[in-house]
Every structure is written in C-alpha cells, then in structure tokens.
C-alpha cells in the first residue's frame, strides 16, 4: 500500500470493476491498482483514518447519517481546488485503491445478490461515493461555515436530487434552499423534491443571479486555506473551518429564501400527493 494517494484513470478503473468486485465476492487487485495509478504528493493515512472513523461512529443501520459527518471533514482534509477535484482519477483511487471497504459499507444495495452500483466507485460527481461528499461540502458551505453542509447531507433527497441541479452553483440559491430546510419550512424528502422542482422550473424564467447578486469568491483566501493544512489537525467532534473565501451575500440569501418560500406555497394543490 502506497503512503500517498494515487490517481486512477477512468479507463483503468473500469477494468477493475467486474461484477464480482461490485458484489464484493472477488477481491480488488491492490498491487495492480497501485502499479497503474499515477502517484501524487497527498498523504494517504489521514484520509483513510476518516473512513475508518466514519464507520466507527455509525452503525450499518445509520450509514446514511455518515454523510453529514464525513462530507465536511473530507473536504477539510483533502483541501483540493475545484480544478483538482474535477479529475476523476483521485476519486477512483479513493474508492478502488484506498477505501473500497467504505464504499461497500455505505452503498451496498439490499438486492439479491447485494451489489454496489458501478458509479459509486467510478462515476459522475453526484454519484461517486467520495466525490459526492466533497462536492456537497464545496457547493453547500457558506464560506468557512460547514453548517449548511451538515444540513444538506442529512437529507438524502438533497444529495440525490438537489446536488445535481445547476442552479445551486449560484451560492445564494443553494443557501436559500438549505435555509428553508434548516428552518423547517420544508422537511420531508417529498417536500424537498417539490421545492427543488418548483425552483428549477421557475428558474427557466427567472434569473436568480440577477435577483440575488453574489460576491466573487476570494481565490487567494482559498489557496491560503489549502496551504494551512500542513500545520493543522482537522477536528472530528466539531465542525472544521472551511476556507474564508467569502460568504454568500446575506441580503441575496434573504431575497431568494422569501421568493422560494412563495414559489413553494404557490405550487398548485395536488402536485405533492403521489400520482
């Protein structure tokens, strides 16, 4: 096992994901994986400890709750730029080379035979076991505050539906949706999906960017935060601190949460009840 993290290209990753591997009935060839992966400078051990800790802190029955704990600490431990995070090689390596046990633990389906979806090992950012957590943390954090991330990751419909929608790339939009969730305006998964549908549909006619301007993120502060990692220990029991690259403008979040609440209450009756 390498001491540093590797990068495993998609094409190579695909070769290892046989049916036997997905069903966890066939071991992954670790040596072959390490051999074909390109090496990076990132230490492997602190990252592996996170996954062990996550499994220690949650029983298999509460494995979905692990997301809310793991997302902020994973984000604060890896400290990647978005450019780096866009490379699927790192995520493939984490899932296939470093911590397949965690992927099996968290994503094994109840089917017969039980199996893990291929995309949990190697797939789009909203699906891959670790990429989805990192991106949820990156897209829902409010500057250094990971609070909204914990709220978002505690709701599987946010992870499965909202995370994929382009509109949340606008930070005030993401924060306004989380605020409605945190203030209990919406609670259930169905309500989350209804709100997301309403905002996403109305977003075809409305420019949230124009209604709620966002400040540019401070790239230098983000870089500083990345470099500070060397001297820091990421806490497990409290929320870590994220990069101080600026919060979403509060006035903008206010405007949108009022608007979204209105859009939500105007959803015609009957839509929420299952067809």
């Amino acid at each position: 096992m390498n001491a540093t993290l590797g990068s495993l290209p998609d094409a190579a990753a695909a070769k290892f994901l046989t049916t036997g591997v997905l069903e966890n009935s066939e071991p992954l060839p670790r040596a072959a994986i390490d051999k074909i992966s390109e090496t990076t400078q990132r230490e492997a051990e602190p990252v592996r400890q996170l996954f062990d800790e996550a499994m220690k802190r949650h029983t298999p029955a509460e494995r979905t709750s692990a997301d809310a704990w793991l997302a902020p600490v994973l984000h604060a431990t890896l400290r990647l730029t978005r450019r780096e995070a866009s490379d699927p090689g790192l995520w493939n390596y984490l899932a296939i080379g470093l911590a397949p046990e965690y992927v099996y633990w968290r994503h094994m389906s109840r089917g017969n035979p039980p199996t893990v979806s291929r995309t949990r090992f190697s797939g789009p950012f909203y699906s891959q076991a670790f990429a989805r957590l990192w991106w949820a943390a990156e897209l829902f954090r409010d500057g250094p505050d990971y609070g909204p991330v914990a709220v978002a990751c505690a709701n599987q419909d946010v992870m499965n539906t909202v995370l994929r929608l382009e509109m949340i790339l606008h930070r005030p939009t993401a924060q306004a949706i989380i605020r409605l969730l945190a203030t209990n305006v919406i609670r259930t998964g169905r309500q989350v999906n209804a709100l997301a549908g309403a905002v996403n549909t109305a977003g075809g006619t409305l420019s949230y960017e124009a209604l709620a301007p966002d400040a540019a993120r401070d790239g230098d502060a983000y870089r500083d935060w990345i470099e500070e990692l060397a001297g820091e220990l990421v806490p497990y029991d409290t929320l870590p601190s994220g990069p101080a690259d600026g919060r979403a403008r509060p006035a903008s979040v206010d405007v949108l949460s009022t608007l979204f609440k209105q859009l939500y209450t105007e959803i015609p009756a009957g839509r929420e009840t299952p067809d």
Partner: peptide, 13 residues
C-alpha cells in the same frame, strides 16, 4: 391540468 404544474403557471415555460 393545473394540479400537474411543478410551480405556478406564470412561472413556467
């Protein structure tokens, strides 16, 4: 059918 609208009609395309 209004009941099938995801949001108020005037907010949709």
């Amino acid at each position: 059918d209004v009941a099938s609208h995801p949001v108020a009609g005037r907010m949709t395309i």
